[in-house]
């Protein structure tokens, strides 16, 4: 039976959290209902269309997030999400997000970074982050296809000289030649799109040691 819209407080801080177009609606439980067996129901709307649509997987759920990636897959559209709290027969009013623009607001995740050490060099191969996929079999869509101006900010830190410097590149392979052999270097890469203040997540710091200098090894033997 439908719940009775009573004075139950609404969920708060209802927002989309989005990385590589994986768009998750999240919220905080309303004041005063924390710890109780309150449940939630979610709906979403494509801006400009007539009806709010139910998200069946997020009906009467007790968690405070709901993955709407499938429903907000077209990143050229804009969306609203809303959620209400239900406690027994009582339910709150809807609490709504701001208008969500995936193309403008998604955070760019880090690329996959593969390092290969040489004697005096490190080769770096980057794989662009991918857009969230509706199902595993679908072809991947690289975030590079969606954002053609996607670039990489590659930082390299020489643990021996304690110096860190940056390279800004657009291609996916680069090499750091003329390094010191048998030295630990740490590399971190951040994909970013020049333009409005778009958040970007850097990769984890990956450290690798260049190989020992073979010629001096032979000399020693």
């Amino acid at each position: 039976a439908p719940c009775v819209s009573s004075g139950l407080p609404k969920p708060i801080n209802v927002t989309f959290s989005s990385v590589n177009m994986k768009n998750v609606l999240q919220w905080n439980s309303p004041e005063g209902l924390r710890g109780t067996d309150v449940v939630y129901t979610v709906q979403y709307l494509i801006y400009g269309q007539k009806r709010w649509l139910n998200k069946s997987e997020c009906r009467n759920i007790n968690r405070t997030s709901c993955d709407l990636s499938y429903d907000t897959y077209d990143h050229e559209e804009q969306y609203y999400g809303r959620v209400k709290a239900i406690w027994g027969k009582h339910c709150s009013k809807w609490a709504e997000t701001e208008r969500f623009n995936p193309w403008l607001e998604t955070q760019i995740g880090p690329p996959v970074v593969a390092l290969t050490p040489g004697e005096k060099s490190i080769s770096v191969v980057l794989t662009a982050p991918e857009k969230w996929k509706r199902n595993a079999e679908n072809n991947s869509v690289s975030m590079h296809q969606i954002y053609p101006t996607l670039k990489y900010n590659v930082s390299i830190y020489n643990t021996k000289t304690n110096k860190k410097w940056y390279k800004f590149v657009t291609n996916h392979t680069l090499e750091f030649p003329q390094l010191e052999s048998d030295t630990l270097y740490c590399i971190r890469v951040q994909a970013y799109v020049p333009g409005p203040r778009r958040k970007a997540k850097p990769s984890d710091n990956q450290c690798i040691t260049t190989l020992k200098d073979q010629t001096s090894e032979l000399k020693v033997k």
Binding site: I156, K163, K164, W165, Y166, K167, F168, P194
Partner: peptide, 10 residues
């Protein structure tokens, strides 16, 4: 072309 100041750029 260096896009922004404040960083050591190779």
């Amino acid at each position: 072309i260096v896009r922004e100041g404040g960083n050591l750029v190779h």
